[in-house]
Design a binder for these strands. Structure first.
Lengths: 219, 219
DNA sequence: TGAGCATCGGGGAAAACCACCCTGTTCCTT
DNA sequence: AAGGAACAGGGTGGTTTTCCCCGATGCTCA
């Protein structure tokens, strides 16, 4: 008697989602439990205790992207194996996804047999990485040993930081923001640094996107 | 006894291709004859007189894109029904594909049932267009009659510019975007400059805010 | 008595921004 | 048929802004 493993698929393109679903249902020993258009949809459709063994997670999605969804899964259902599925071959995307807890990274133009292999490997060994990206994985692992700030604290912002963020959601330069807030350029630089750390972003655009997604600023 | 219609799929993403294949093979009365990664691959795999009734054609592909492939099919096998399959919702892409002989245009995030409907309609009526797209088709036809040169939209972005903007709504640097879009850093710099002018913004943050406010990119 | 917050500063690398330059193609108008 | 937009793609060189270290002071609160 063979055990059946359950898969969930999260991707914003319906056609791709349904296609992959049909494909996976042809794999012996695997069934698609459900599919979702984004992270929010996924969370909404999750009905414990019927959890998927593996989540196939696209990175770029509206509403709630792959990184945010991976965070949520890691916190709320650490037993679920996260496999990232993306067209992007960019190092940063891969490393970022690994840092967010993905156990594997599969390119959308890989062969379906690789997908099946990824299922097997990640369930038995706990991870699956393509030869092409193993190097990147090792580098990311190194980073985790060095400066791992793995607390995913919400990171509440202070009043000053909040008003800084609101000013930053504009075309103003940091120098202009400093003048508006009646503080020095260095002080604003300090706001930036602490906000980046708290929101876990690395660029001003990332901060703006975060602020809008979470409703910190209204448009 | 029902007749069986044969489908060919042309798309550069293997995973999507194989997924759609599995999906279509579940449709009663339809079989996937073969799938190809691009136009050249498609031509190479064609073995007359075993021709597909319908070709599902992606637009953006390496080697030989959707437009070129459509041209070739129209010239060499006019009997084959071409259905465009794309993520792009841009007017120009749709109109251009229609001009190249596509009998229908289906978005990748449409429901599979729409795909099945498109098969039925295009085989019986000779064409299939979504309600949302019919308007564009009519407008395109209208333009052919009265030389309508209205540029009602203030800053209409091209396809490349649009995908640039979408990539820019992230923490990626312009260099990374250049690599993702497979163009040089200078070219991306050109996109930036023309988009800034068209949207009347002066910084990347301004562009991101504009894109979100107008729904150019969804969050 | 640290921890966290607010405020400043220098220096430097990277990214973003800008201004001109060039090649082609396609499509439309004259 | 010729010209001119508009488009995709690439290039040099330069300024400004962002980003990220290294500090520092003083204040409050538990």
């Amino acid at each position: 008697m063979h055990e059946t493993f359950y898969i969930a698929i999260v991707d914003d393109h319906t056609m791709f989602r349904k296609g992959i679903t049909a494909l996976i249902n042809l794999f012996p020993g695997y069934r698609v439990l459900f599919d979702a258009a984004n992270g929010k949809d996924f969370i909404h459709q999750l009905k414990p205790p019927h959890l998927p063994d593996i989540v196939l997670l696209d990175i770029s999605m509206p509403e709630m992207d792959g990184y945010a969804t991976a965070d949520w899964i890691r916190v709320n259902h650490p037993g679920i194996c996260i496999l990232a599925l993306s067209t992007m071959e960019s190092e940063t995307a891969i490393i970022k996804m690994i840092k967010h807890g993905a156990r594997g990274y599969i390119l959308k133009d890989a062969d379906p047999s690789e997908l099946q292999l990824a299922f097997r490997e990640s369930l038995s060994k706990g991870f699956y990485y393509n030869d092409a990206i193993t190097g990147l994985v090792l580098q990311a692992v190194g980073d985790l040993f060095n400066n791992n700030t793995r607390e995913l604290a919400p990171g509440k912002l202070t009043d000053r930081e909040l008003s800084f963020v609101r000013h930053a959601c504009s075309e103003k330069s940091y120098l202009q923001i400093a003048r508006d807030l009646q503080v020095s350029e260095r002080t604003v630089d300090g706001y930036r640094e602490s906000v980046f750390k708290k929101l876990k972003v690395s660029t001003r655009v990332g901060m703006v996107l975060f602020a809008i997604r979470t409703g910190m600023v209204k448009l």
